[in-house]
């Protein structure tokens, strides 16, 4: 696609869309939203970029190696966060029982492990969207 207007509008909007997605992921525990919704917003920003600017430029933004890495270690990150509870002598994926400081209610750092787990899930969901899209579009070309 070589539409001038589309490219300029995308260049203006996509950074903000991506920042908004990251905001939704990071504030999943203090605002409406969450890691699944935010991850999809981040992934869709990449997908929109690739559909507008073409496959080659899209692949230059996020390489196959990067998606494969995030794809694999995103799930492992969740398990590692669960193991924090085990190392503190509490059940797997324990949060308050493991004695983790929950912080002030409503602050970004509140919730102990929940924010970190949410970050992992969000990155995971966005990489799933990107990988599925790239796998299908590279098959066609």
């Amino acid at each position: 696609m070589t539409d001038f207007i589309l490219k300029r509008v995308a260049a203006l909007l996509l950074p903000f869309i991506q920042m908004y997605g990251l905001y939704v992921i990071l504030h999943g525990h203090v605002s409406p939203g969450g890691s699944f919704a935010g991850g999809i917003v981040v992934g869709l920003a990449f997908i929109a970029f690739t559909t507008i600017y073409g496959l080659k430029k899209g692949r230059a933004k996020i390489s196959e190696k990067a998606t494969a890495l995030v794809e694999s270690y995103g799930t492992l990150w969740y398990g590692l966060m669960g193991m924090v509870g085990v190392f503190k002598g509490a059940p797997f994926l324990a949060n308050k029982i493991a004695g983790i400081d929950l912080g002030e209610l409503g602050a970004l750092s509140s919730g102990g492990l929940i924010g970190l787990i949410g970050l992992g899930v969000g990155i995971r969901v966005s990489s799933t969207m990107i990988t599925l899209f790239f796998t299908m579009i590279e098959e066609e070309s």
Binding site: G28, H29, V30, S31, P32, G33, G34, N95, K96, L102, G103, L105, G106, S110, G111, G112, I114, G118
Partner: peptide
């Protein structure tokens, strides 16, 4: 849990 969003 220490979070405001009950769904989270």
């Amino acid at each position: 849990t220490g979070v405001l969003n009950m769904i989270t």
